[in-house]
Design a protein around this nucleic acid. Structure first.
Lengths: 188, 188
DNA sequence: AACATATCATCCGAAACAGATCATTGTCAA
DNA sequence: TTGACAATGATCTGTTTCGGATGATATGTT
């Protein structure tokens, strides 16, 4: 049965979440996504209804529908599903990330830097706060390192972004000018 | 005529590039995209044939096709097009960027950190180099600040990313552990 | 019961996507 | 000069994805 369809990142998100949580409904998945990977991989919730159906067709999950009421569908990872997920996990990914930043686009095309910076600064600060709160929460508990580490990279990105917009918003503070960034101190 | 269609980020990229360059063919646009915004906003080249057609339908650009040979279509920004673009430019964007990082996804789900890091480190280093080369090139010439600034944010992101993966690849160097990132070291 | 408000599930048209394919032009060797 | 082949440029096509709209159930309140 298995293997008729092409597995996309969305597929692996579903498979991965199912492997963490056990059987779940699309709505459960939606909750999980917004709580976890949604921060760095957004997708419309309708996908979380469509995708498991696709996966079921190909045998990566099984589908059990309630007979009455909301007729929820409960999805369970199958062995082939778990295998496919694990194989994906252990496969190299030389690809780079894809960034889509509306603000950057406007900056590029010459939008007013001050205004742009003010707004961006505020929202990014907010998000940075959220992330850091979340991080301190996670620091307490034990568990796999993955979620914490990915959060840490998110925090670093946000921090750089905040710094950047802050410099644009208040030019000539601290670092006198937004000069050509040179090579990195450590990390060599 | 104007205003029948919804303008998407892709639309604004086309309008914006046309406003920089003057009349251009889809192929010209494709070249411009890969040279500029492509770095932080990728799109399939076929869109650069489809999108101008859409825009022409709604009156934001005009279309002139060669009578023979390749029958190129030359697109020119109209006044409504320029207006729409300028309005977009001067509109606030509280939205955050959208990041889609396959490596981060795998990290989250528990992939082997060492392998992941080694590969990512290499590709990100390469990209960082490209960006820095480009930046020194741009530093020489005059022109609007937007392109240079957006490149600078790109460089910062890449640098953080390189640092992050480097730490994962060689744990216990310099920074003893990948500890909860606290306030930013430099550049703050 | 009647109503308001969450919660949950599905649908749908419009775009985006990725890539294949097709058509023109340039080039160089026979 | 022609014919082969590569490079360039344009278009087409089938699938997914997007992002709401819509509608149905459940829960709580009076």
């Amino acid at each position: 049965m298995t293997g008729e369809i092409e597995l996309t990142p969305t597929s692996y998100i579903v498979l991965g979440l199912l492997s963490f949580s056990g059987p779940a409904t699309p709505y459960d998945l939606k909750q999980m996504v917004t709580a976890t990977v949604g921060h760095f991989w957004s997708l419309p919730h309708s996908q979380l209804y469509a995708e498991p159906t696709r996966l079921a067709r190909a045998g990566y999950v099984t589908e059990n529908q309630e007979k009455s009421g909301r007729r929820r569908k409960l999805y369970t990872l199958t062995e082939p599903g778990r295998d496919a997920f694990n194989e994906w996990l252990s496969t190299l990914t030389p690809e780079l990330y894809m960034l889509r930043d509306l603000a950057l686009l406007k900056l590029f095309f010459g939008a007013d830097i001050g205004e742009l910076a003010a707004v961006q600064l505020e929202t990014h600060r907010k998000r940075l706060d959220e992330y850091e709160t979340l991080h301190t929460l996670m620091a307490g508990q034990k568990g796999p390192a993955g979620p914490r580490l990915s959060l840490e990279l998110g925090i670093r990105h946000e921090r750089e972004t905040v710094n950047f917009w802050a410099e644009q918003a208040h030019p000539g503070k601290k670092k006198p000018a937004p000069r050509p960034p040179r090579a990195s101190p450590r990390s060599g």
